[in-house]
Computed example of a mutant assay.
Amino acid sequence: MRRFYILLTVGALCTCFTFYYINRYGKQLGSPVPVKANIRQENKQKIQKLEGIDKYVTIDQEEMFALRCNKCAIISNSGRLLKTGAGREIDETECVIRMNTSPTKGFEQDVGSKTTIRVIGHANLKKLQSMSAILEEFFSDPKTKTKHLIVAWLYMTHVNKTSNPHYKTTRILSKMYPGISFYVPTLESMQKAELIFKKETDITRKNANTWFTTGWLTMLLAIATCKNIAVYGMLEHHHCQNHMNDPTLYHYYNPKDGKECQYYKRSEESLAWGHLFITEKAIFENWAKQAPITFHHPFWNISGTSSSSLDTPFITKYRYRYKHFQRFSKLGTIPNLHTHAHITSQSGAFQMKVILIVFCLPFLFLMGCICCF
């Protein structure tokens, strides 16, 4: 009878501790809790004066990018531009900025044909070399060729000018088309882009395991280059969360590239790879409250002047996972979640194992000892 009461007491204590733990932390084992990001409420002047972000230099390192425009149009590659009839309005803009390998031929009515600046992410350079029709359109045809081509390093800050294959490709293209000004970012420009991302999200790009999108670097360039910016074909950050079955194409010129919202969702919810399309657009909305940036096709209904907290899928998921990882690892810095994916990918299951180990094993041990005596 004495052993029975001892077992009953130990079992009750184990149960009480287990319920205490679940009651205190159990709510965090389910859906992530909203987290407010550390957003800097910069004023309009600070947004417009991103010193160093526009420091691009010609491939021969002799001339800095110095173009300045009163008004710029940034043309996205989204299928949202189809059937908008925005081509004439775009071509009437003083400076038109396009991205990557998006063509205009065959789509002039909706996207126009004029190109002042084309920003190409470095990962697209090799593909560009093999696209003869696109090379003709971008660099030779007087109606469609760009005046300035800017290569954006999507994840690199230090680039070896002699051995880097993307730099070599840029050099080859610049020699093939001497009438076009080819620019590459300076170290200062890329460091500034990294710093701005860190200030806006409170996470380094490296720890977020992301590449910058070409759109992110294009927007930074436009803010430094243009007094007024009109963006065409870019959706609001919350659109895909509310319309996951939206059939709009990711690229207006290639149906094989899939649906826009589906790709955004896959990238945004990954902690180990991909672009942060939705998070970047939430940041753009905050900037548009402080600087002359407008959005068309679709129109963004932006109100107020204060920056909103970032509650995008990536930000919420990252901070939720980090919070639990830090509790058990006792790390003092934000971890790289790709490196520690074996722990963070199943944080809820991991915590339940801790519960069993901390509270239930001692009970089993004591029960075994009592039975032996």
Rank of each mutant, 00 (worst) to 15 (best):
V10P: 04
A12V: 14
A12T: 14
F17M: 04
N23L: 07
R24F: 07
K27P: 00
K27R: 08
Q28V: 04
G30F: 00
P32E: 08
K36I: 05
N38R: 12
K46D: 09
K49R: 12
G52R: 11
K55Q: 12
K55I: 01
T58Y: 01
T58C: 10
D60Q: 07
E62A: 12
L67F: 09
A73V: 05
G79D: 02
G79W: 06
G79L: 11
L81P: 01
G85N: 07
D91L: 11
D91G: 15
T93G: 06
T93H: 09
R98V: 00
N100G: 05
S102T: 02
S102E: 06
P103R: 12
G106Q: 04
Q109V: 04
D110L: 10
I120Y: 15
A123G: 08
N124Y: 15
S132F: 01
A133T: 06
I134W: 12
E136W: 15
E136V: 00
E137C: 08
F138T: 09
L149C: 11
L149S: 03
T157S: 06
T157G: 00
V159G: 03
T162Y: 15
T162L: 15
N164G: 02
Y167D: 01
K168Y: 10
S174E: 04
M176R: 09
P178Q: 14
S181Q: 08
S181A: 08
F182V: 05
V184C: 12
P185N: 11
L187H: 14
M190Y: 02
K199A: 14
T201R: 09
I203T: 01
T204Q: 09
N209M: 04
T210F: 03
T210K: 10
T213G: 00
T214P: 03
G215M: 04
A222C: 07
I223S: 02
I223L: 13
C226Q: 03
K227W: 05
I229S: 01
V231W: 12
V231T: 15
Y232W: 13
H239R: 04
N242F: 11
T248H: 03
L249P: 00
Y250N: 10
Y252M: 07
D257K: 13
K265P: 02
S267T: 03
E268W: 11
E269P: 01
E269I: 13
E269Y: 01
S270T: 07
L271F: 01
L276R: 13
F277G: 01
I278Y: 11
E280V: 06
A282W: 14
I283K: 04
E285D: 12
N286Q: 09
K289A: 09
W300E: 06
T305E: 10
S306Y: 09
S307W: 05
S307G: 08
L310D: 08
L310A: 00
P313E: 10
I315G: 03
Y322F: 06
K323L: 06
F328N: 02
T333M: 07
T333R: 14
S347E: 13
I355T: 03
C360E: 02
L361I: 15
L364Q: 11
G368Y: 14
C369K: 11
I370C: 01
C371M: 12
